[in-house]
Simulated scan of single mutants.
Amino acid sequence: MVPTMVLVADGTRDTRRKEALHDLAEAVADRREAPVQAAFGSPTELRAAVESIEGPLVVVPAFLAGSDAASTELLAGLDLDSRFDACATAPLGAVPSIVAQLVTRLHAEGWRPGDGVVLAADGGPELPGNSERRQVIDVARMLSRRVQTPVQVGYLHAWAPSVSDAVARLRRNGHDRVAVATWQLVDGADLHRLREIGATAVTAPFGPSPVVIDTLLAQHRAATARLAA
C-alpha cells in the first residue's frame, strides 16, 4: 500500500498563499504516484487531517527550509510517535536542482554577471534541533558558486540582516544593480514586500515547477522505503 503524502504548511495568514499551496498539492497529485492529502491550516486542522487517514502516511513539508517560520513551528508541533506507520520528512533545503532553478529564475528576471544577489529567506525563532538557518546559508553558498559572485542572505522576519539591509549593503559595496532571489515555495504577501524593497529584480517563488514536484515525490519515496524497512 502506497503511503498517503500529507503536504503540510501553515495556511492561516494569507488567502493567496493558501490557494497557491492547494495548486501545488494538486500538481503533485496529478503525477498519480501517491495519494495526496493537503493539510494547510492550523495545528488543530493538521492533527485532524493526519487522524483522518487510515493506513500509512508520510508528512512532507510544503515549504523550504528557512522559508516559512510559521510552517516550521506547525510541523514541529506534530507528534507521530504513536503511529508505527507514519513518518515525516525534512523541509527541502540545499538541493542542487532547486538551486539551479533559482539561477535560471535570476537570469529570467534580468540578472547579469557582476550584479549583486540577495537570497531572501523568512527567518524566525530558533527551535530545538533547528538547522534551517544553516540550510539557508548552505543555499547561499551553492548559489554563490553558480553565479560566481558573493550572495548575501537577508531575512523577512526576526533574524538579521533584513532583506532591505542586505540590498543596501551590496549597493554600498559598489553594486548598482542588486537582484533578490526569493527562497519561497509559493506566492503570498511576502512577495509584495520584497518588490517594495527597490531591488533591480525579484524572482518569483518556485511554485509547482517540475523540479519541486520531483523533489517532493523523491522525499516521499525515500520515506516510504524507511517505513517498509
Score class of each variant (00 low, 15 high):
167 V>S: 11
101 Q>F: 04
72 T>D: 07
55 G>L: 01
218 A>I: 02
46 L>S: 14
37 Q>C: 15
102 L>P: 04
55 G>N: 07
197 I>Q: 11
175 H>R: 10
208 P>W: 15
167 V>K: 11
219 Q>M: 03
135 Q>I: 00
101 Q>S: 15
184 Q>S: 10
218 A>P: 01
12 T>Q: 12
128 P>D: 02
66 G>I: 00
162 S>T: 15
225 A>M: 07
67 S>T: 02
111 W>Q: 06
209 S>T: 03
205 P>C: 07
121 A>F: 10
29 A>I: 12
142 M>D: 11
98 I>T: 09
129 G>Q: 07
212 V>N: 05
119 L>M: 12
190 D>K: 15
44 T>P: 03
94 A>P: 12
141 R>D: 05
212 V>W: 08
11 G>A: 01
13 R>S: 06
167 V>T: 07
70 A>W: 14
197 I>H: 05
130 N>K: 00
24 L>H: 12
155 Y>W: 11
10 D>V: 14
27 A>E: 12
162 S>Q: 02
60 V>S: 02
26 E>V: 15
115 D>T: 08
120 A>P: 00
95 V>K: 09
180 V>W: 09
36 V>S: 06
34 A>M: 15
94 A>V: 10
76 A>R: 00
12 T>L: 08
113 P>G: 10
171 R>N: 13
190 D>Q: 07
18 K>R: 09
221 R>W: 10
110 G>N: 13
78 L>H: 04
51 E>T: 01
6 V>Y: 04
190 D>P: 02
192 H>K: 13
170 L>D: 13
40 F>A: 07
51 E>I: 10
182 T>Y: 09
69 A>C: 02
26 E>C: 11
106 L>N: 06
144 S>R: 04
19 E>A: 14
119 L>N: 02
224 T>Y: 07
27 A>Q: 12
197 I>E: 12
161 P>Q: 09
218 A>T: 04
126 E>M: 03
4 T>F: 02
205 P>N: 12
9 A>P: 04
122 D>C: 06
166 A>Y: 11
51 E>A: 14
84 F>G: 00
117 V>F: 02
13 R>F: 15
228 A>I: 15
132 E>W: 00
111 W>F: 03
9 A>Q: 07
228 A>Y: 13
139 V>M: 05
67 S>F: 14
125 P>V: 01
77 G>T: 01
209 S>H: 13
147 V>W: 00
75 L>H: 01
38 A>Q: 11
60 V>M: 04
170 L>R: 12
58 V>S: 06
88 A>L: 06
187 D>G: 12
36 V>L: 09
19 E>D: 09
17 R>W: 07
8 V>P: 13
223 A>N: 10
202 V>N: 08
109 E>A: 11
68 D>P: 06
53 I>L: 15
70 A>H: 03
96 P>L: 05
20 A>T: 09
